[in-house]
């Protein structure tokens, strides 16, 4: 009775009410995210024996196969390269936009600009990817346009059904993801710091490099992670515009699960992909923090 009384009292405190309120959502995430993620980890050590049957004896065979088969290794490396390049392109292209909206647009027009930038993100992903196929195709918009103005005679064929097409399409799809965090970080910069730097005789460029850029670093780090992590698992883009040479790890995971009926191997590939992404993300986070801190130290 004493214990239940204490529990009842706990749920009347600030902490208790907070816990109670968050519990339905937390429970949902626990059951539908934590449990499935643990399940996929466990199954990666099993062997498939039938349509829905598994040999549950612990084995590392799937990991051995995933790490030694050149096909899987190639897909994994290509996925990493594609998401790395897509991240680099989107963040480099996005920074000037975020900077322009934060510093060059009147305050009352800022949310309109941000709204305009985010709208394409909310329109059908499938349709957008498919339209890139239309744009980049052999008889596509780009080729017929370039032919019409006489820049090229033969249609360019290196822009569809390969890795280039995957990179262009993904860079387009993830653009708003890169702009928003950088914009938020730039908005937080105290404008008087920039004035102080100019008053102390720094040039506009040096002020940007030594004050604005280091202060925007957390936004850039967030942008890199928010683009890099989901792109590595993209399925639709490589499938529609990648051709056989542009397929990525998510396509193989899908094949293992839905076509080859080898869920354990698919699970292994999924676990490995998540592990690699997590390691890279954490390493980047540490490096990013150190870089931002290092620059601060250099300012003296």
């Amino acid at each position: 009775m004493a214990a239940s009384g204490r529990i009842r009292r706990f749920f009347r405190t600030e902490q208790g009410i907070g816990m109670l309120l968050v519990s339905p959502t937390a429970l949902y995430a626990l059951l539908l995210l934590a449990v499935p993620l643990i399940a996929i980890f466990v199954i990666s050590f099993w062997t498939q024996t039938g349509v829905r049957d598994f040999d549950t004896a612990f084995t590392l065979a799937n990991y051995k196969e995933a790490l030694t088969d050149p096909l899987y290794r190639q897909l994994m490396l290509r996925s990493l390269m594609v998401s790395g390049l897509v991240t680099l392109i989107t963040v480099v292209l996005a920074f000037p936009i975020a900077y322009f909206v934060s510093f060059g647009v009147k305050p009352e027009h800022k949310s309109l600009w941000i709204f305009l930038i985010t709208i394409p993100f909310w329109t059908s992903y499938l349709i957008r990817v498919f339209l890139w196929k239309v744009i980049l195709g052999y008889n596509g918009v780009l080729n017929s346009g370039l032919q019409a103005v006489g820049i090229i005679e033969e249609p360019l064929s290196f822009i569809l059904y390969n890795v280039n097409a995957v990179i262009i399409t993904l860079a387009h799809a993830y653009a708003p993801f890169a702009i928003l965090p950088i914009f938020v970080a730039l908005e937080k910069i105290d404008r008087s710091l920039l004035e102080a730097s100019r008053d102390l005789g720094e040039s506009r460029t040096m002020t940007f490099l030594r004050v604005t850029l280091p202060l925007a670093a957390p936004g850039v780090v967030a942008a890199v992670l928010i683009v890099f992590i989901p792109t590595i698992g993209d399925y639709v883009t490589p499938r529609l515009v990648g051709g056989p040479g542009g397929l990525m790890i998510a396509n193989m995971i899908q094949t293992q699960f839905l076509r080859l009926n080898n869920a354990p191997l698919g699970a292994t590939l999924a676990v490995l992909a998540m592990l690699i992404v997590a390691v890279i993300a954490i390493a980047f986070l540490i490096l990013g923090n150190r870089a931002a801190g290092g620059k601060k130290g250099a300012r003296k």
Binding site: L32, L33, V35, P36, L37, A39, I40, I43, R52, L225, I226, I229, P230, I232, G233, D234, Y235, A250, I253, Q254, F257, A263, G266, A267, A270, A273, M274
Partner: peptide, 18 residues
């Protein structure tokens, strides 16, 4: 928000089938 959707999809599929 950041987890690739395919991970959410396959992990839920596995639990449902199991």
């Amino acid at each position: 928000l950041v987890l690739p959707e395919i991970i959410v999809a396959v992990s839920l599929l596995i639990v449902i089938l199991r």
